[in-house]
Design a protein around this nucleic acid. Structure first.
Lengths: 164, 164
DNA sequence: CTTCACCTGATAACAATCTATGAGGTGAGT
DNA sequence: ACTCACCTCATAGATTGTTATCAGGTGAAG
């Protein structure tokens, strides 16, 4: 006959706290049998459900989503993994997968390239800026020298023009 | 041809804030086309997707769940309710194809983007060059004037410095 | 030169979800 | 009687998810 687990055992087995089990039961509206005393009796099937739930939780689904997932899981109960989680391609699609994978790789490459381009561009832009600044600096320098020259003092702007 | 909406319009239409749209785009990893300027361009299909997303949100699904739902939703594009609720194994092939299609599209986009970046870069490079040339030209001009001045003829380089 | 409608982070403020505890209780077995 | 393993209801605390804002920018159009 069927075997049932008490909440303590389940907590042990699945490695979660009892209160969490109770919480899941409520929030997911899972129905767990009770014995005459009102104690929960978990069936193997319940354990499976719970294991699935835990997996889904890991993936980041919230209770509402898990609830939905459980509903649809109902259908594929015959052996297979539930639909939502494992949209596994059949054998004959293997090829497609590999193609897709290659495309994805290419995609990544493109993205990288893209990124590099952007960087290069940024550098270029900076360079323009620098150049601009430099040029202005030179003009300033020149003007100063020139003014000095006008007043007959300071080193000659001519020398600036020539050397250095 | 296809019509595109800017983020402002979409926000209006769907009655959500622009920043929320951006948030969804990130958290759901939805890909929205961009124009040359980098502005988002929402297609009708994107609008549909968003509408679906909003519905799912209302139902209490979190982004992770919605992401999954979107993936599988692709199939039931023919009217029907979103995929999460109705995942059937036979859909796998169709689903894969559509995923692949999306990836390829993305790929194309990336290439385009890439191309645009290159162009932009070329333009930048040209600009730098022009600037350089111009600068040299000015210097030349100046030098000539100056030489002329030195020989007591030609118009004053001073005037060049001042007015042009 | 200013306004407009965008863009990208970063981060603050708030909301929902999940986990942990505590009080008060029950029946069964020692 | 007492302890054990449960139960419920309530609520505190921690973690995530979501929405709002802010600063600092850009290109196009008036």
């Amino acid at each position: 006959m069927e075997r049932f687990y008490k909440i303590g055992e389940v907590a042990e087995l699945l490695n979660i706290e009892q209160h969490t089990l109770r919480y899941l039961e409520n929030s997911l509206k899972i129905k767990i049998k009770r014995d005459e005393r009102g104690d929960r009796m978990y069936s193997e099937a319940d354990l499976d459900t719970l294991r699935l739930v835990l997996q889904l939780k890991e993936k980041g689904l919230n209770t509402t989503a898990i609830k939905l997932a459980l509903e649809t899981a109902q259908d594929s109960e015959d052996g297979q993994q539930p639909g939502l989680v494992s949209v596994q391609p059949e054998n004959n699609i293997k090829e497609m997968v590999s193609i897709a994978r290659r495309i994805i790789e290419q995609n990544d490459e493109l993205m990288q390239q893209n990124h590099k381009l952007e960087e290069r561009m940024a550098r270029l832009e900076k360079k323009i800026e620098e150049r601009n600044v430099e040029r202005e600096k030179k003009i300033d320098e020149f003007l100063n020298l020139w003014r000095a020259e006008q007043e007959g003092k300071g080193r000659s702007w001519l020398s600036w023009l020539r050397g250095k």
